[in-house]
C-alpha cells in the first residue's frame, strides 16, 4: 500500500479530506445531540505517515485511551477507530449515565456498552455520508471496546496496514467540547485496495 498511497496527488488528498470533513461533520452533530453540548471539530487531517508515528497523533504510544473499533463492510472495507483519552471517556460516561462529573473512575460493562453505542452512532453518521458521497454501500460491524495504551490499541489497525507497506493513510478528525475538555479522535483507515475504490467512486483518478 505504501507505493499506492505515496503516489496520491494533491487533488486526491483534497478529495479525501472533503470526504472526511462531511463524514466527521455528521458525526459531530450526532455526538452533540446525544450529550446536548456544542462540539467543535478540526478540519480533518489527511496524513501519510510512517506506521510508527501514528500513536503520536493521540499523545504517544503509552497514552491511556479508550478505543472503540469497528470494521466497515462493503465494496471498500475499512477500519474505524474512535479513540478517547481516558479522562474524556470517563467524562463522557458521566454525562451519558447522568452521574456527577468525576464519578466514573473505571468502566463497568454498562459504561462500556454506552461508549460502544457512541462509537456505533458516530460511525453510522460518518458512513452514512461517506456512502452518500461515494454511492458505495458501507456498513459497520458491531463495535468492540478496549481501554489500554494507545500504541497497543492502534497496533490492531497498524498491523493490517503493515502487511502492505510502511506508511499509513490516516483520515483523522479531532472532536472537542470546549466547556469541559472532552476530546476524541476519529480514524478512518481504508484497507489496502479500498482507497482506489473510494477515489474512483468520487471520480478523482489522479
Amino acid at each position: 500500500m505504501s507505493s499506492e498511497i505515496l503516489k496520491l496527488s494533491a487533488m486526491q488528498l483534497d478529495a479525501l479530506r472533503e470526504v472526511g470533513n462531511v463524514g466527521a461533520g455528521n458525526s459531530a452533530t450526532a455526538l452533540s445531540q446525544i450529550i446536548n453540548r456544542k462540539i467543535d471539530m478540526t478540519v480533518p487531517q489527511v496524513a501519510i505517515m510512517p506506521l510508527g508515528d501514528v500513536p503520536d497523533v493521540v499523545g504517544g504510544p503509552d497514552a491511556m485511551v479508550v478505543g472503540v473499533y469497528l470494521r466497515v463492510f462493503g465494496p471498500a472495507p475499512s477500519s474505524i477507530l474512535f479513540l478517547l483519552p481516558r479522562d474524556s471517556a470517563f467524562y463522557l460516561v458521566d454525562m451519558l449515565m447522568g452521574r456527577e462529573q468525576g464519578d466514573t473512575t473505571s468502566l463497568t460493562s454498562m459504561d462500556e456498552s454506552a461508549l460502544m453505542e457512541i462509537g456505533n452512532i458516530l460511525s453510522g453518521a460518518y458512513l452514512n455520508s461517506l456512502s452518500h458521497f461515494t454511492n458505495l454501500t458501507l456498513l459497520p460491524s458491531i463495535p468492540a471496546l478496549a481501554m489500554d495504551m494507545a500504541g497497543a490499541i492502534l497496533s490492531v489497525i497498524l498491523i493490517q496496514l503493515g502487511q502492505m507497506g510502511d506508511h499509513a493513510l490516516v483520515i483523522e478528525t479531532e472532536f472537542t467540547s470546549d466547556n469541559d475538555g472532552v476530546k476524541g479522535h476519529f480514524f478512518l483507515i481504508p484497507d489496502p485496495g479500498s482507497l482506489t475504490t473510494i477515489l474512483a467512486a468520487i471520480g478523482v483518478k489522479g
Partner: peptide, 24 residues
C-alpha cells in the same frame, strides 16, 4: 524502540518499547 524497529545497546543503558498490543 519504536514500532517495527529494533535497537541494540550495552550496559549501563536500557532499552524500552511503549504500548505493545498484538506486536511482540
Amino acid at each position: 524502540v519504536g514500532m517495527a524497529d529494533y535497537k541494540v545497546g550495552i550496559s549501563p543503558n536500557n532499552l524500552i518499547s511503549y504500548g505493545l498490543g498484538s506486536c511482540v
